[in-house]
């Protein structure tokens, strides 16, 4: 082997045109925050200049003030407590049952075909349509609202869970068997952790469905709760309080998704 001559640049040598960089978006955090602030500033400006009626579209400052007043008077805490209790209890029931049933569908041929059929049939029903029925069953109080949320979060969790179980690499299961692991050990040490990423992203979707159902249920029959607050503010044309309620709901959603994000980060650190 001998070393070849080095590059022969000279007359006639042209640079190869770069054509690799296209559609490679970067995430610029500052730009995101700026866009949000700019929207709020524009809104405030439009209100201050009188372009928008304060009744139909109150300014961000007015919404902020309403939020502050409700916070100081303790009104907000009451609504928030009622809403969070319903959401968390309903989501806990629906999520836990959903993961359990999803695992059963994913693991057992006995449960699988009937389970998938039932879930496919019931999943597309808008769950809020069942609230009147749940009111008949569980009464107008907390029971019917919690049941609606539990029912609504159950189905997406089941679907995500059994999909995630199906996606666990079969060669890992075979490996577990080849090292003498029992069926229970394979479920808890291989299938469940392998399905966890899919389960958690299913819970994320279920949680946002849960918030939708929470608000809808509170609008139909509740005196306490953020949904009730939004509805009654609308009836009284208090659009500043109405939007304050919407802001609170958005914050609830963000907080819940932040908690799930934290869980993902801790449980899926290996990724």
């Amino acid at each position: 082997m001998r070393e070849p001559a080095t590059a022969e640049t000279g007359v006639g040598a042209r640079r190869v045109a770069y054509r690799g960089g296209v559609f490679l978006p970067e995430t610029r955090r500052a730009a995101g925050a700026t866009a949000l602030l700019a929207l709020i500033a524009l809104w405030q400006l439009a209100s201050s200049l009188g372009w928008m009626s304060p009744v139909f579209a109150p300014s961000p400052a007015e919404v902020g003030e309403a939020l502050w007043r409700m916070g100081v008077s303790g009104e907000l805490v009451g609504h928030l407590k009622a809403s969070l209790a319903r959401l968390l209890v309903g989501f806990a029931i629906g999520g836990t049952a959903g993961v359990a049933f999803g695992l059963a569908v994913g693991l057992s041929s006995l449960v699988r075909a009937p389970g998938v059929t039932l879930v496919s049939a019931l999943f597309p029903i808008p769950k809020i349509a069942l609230l009147p029925l749940f009111i008949l069953w569980f009464g107008i109080g907390e029971g019917s609202k919690v049941a609606t949320i539990a029912f609504g979060t159950f189905f997406p969790t089941v679907i995500a869970t059994y999909g995630a179980v199906d996606n666990v690499d079969r060669s890992l299961v075979r490996m577990g068997r080849s090292f003498g692991l029992s069926q229970a050990a394979i479920v808890w040490k291989i299938i469940f952790p392998g399905a966890l990423p899919g389960i958690l992203s299913g819970l994320r979707i279920a949680s946002s469905i849960g918030i939708v159902l929470l608000v809808a249920a509170e609008m139909i029959g509740a005196s306490q709760g953020v949904g009730a607050l939004v509805l009654s503010a609308g009836n009284l044309m208090q659009s500043d309080r109405l939007l304050a309620g919407v802001v609170v709901l958005s914050l609830v959603g963000l907080t819940l998704s932040a908690f799930l994000g934290l869980a993902e980060k801790r449980l899926l650190a290996w990724r």
Binding site: D169, S171, L172, R174, M175, G176, F179, G180, L181, S182, A185, K189, I190, P193, G194, L268, W270, R271
Partner: peptide
């Protein structure tokens, strides 16, 4: 394809084989 559990460390993967026994 190695069949290692991605959520377990190297030591954890070796330990899995012992847990079966």
């Amino acid at each position: 394809d190695f069949a290692l559990l991605p959520w377990r460390t190297v030591a954890g993967n070796v330990r899995l084989a012992l847990e079966g026994h």
